[in-house]
């Protein structure tokens, strides 16, 4: 079980706070746990992401095991891209938990976050 408890929207120039819960099974073989808030900017039909906006917090598997909930807090800059879908341009934000596992595929969970003006 990977669970993200966080608001689904945030205003620019404010904090996005939340917690992540990860089950024992998902932590098996984990090397590192990371919570990231990432922006994607795409134009037209291209799959390319032009955005460099990204915030992250890393936890050791030990921390993830000993704490029932992993807290995180990201400051969304006042100049950060808003969530937007226009004629050609799309800007969206995703909040994700990524568990890097030794010798296996990473485990992850993501959710959309609306970043508003």
């Amino acid at each position: 079980m990977i669970k993200i408890n966080a608001p689904t929207s945030v205003n620019r120039n404010s904090e996005l706070k939340g917690v992540v819960e990860i089950g024992e099974k998902e932590l098996k073989g984990a090397r590192m746990v990371e919570v990231k808030l990432c922006n994607e900017i795409m134009y037209g039909n291209e799959k390319r992401n032009y955005s460099c906006w990204e915030m992250g917090k890393k936890y050791s598997p030990g921390d993830a095991r000993s704490l029932f909930e992993l807290p995180f807090e990201f400051h969304v800059d006042g100049e950060a891209p808003i969530t937007y879908k226009g004629k050609q341009l799309v800007s969206r934000w995703k909040l994700g938990v990524f568990i890097n596992v030794i010798g296996a595929r990473d485990r992850w969970k993501k959710m959309d976050v609306l970043v508003m003006r």
């Binding site: 900017i41 795409m42 134009y43 032009y50 955005s51 460099c52 906006w53 800059d77 100049e79 950060a80 891209p81 808003i82 937007y84 226009g86 341009l89 800007s91 003006r117």
Partner: peptide, 20 residues
Amino acid sequence: ALPTITPEPYKKNINEGAGL
């Protein structure tokens, strides 16, 4: 008016990448 969307932090007048 829509706000500027810039692809890189701290680069308000960037002209490479994509944005608004």
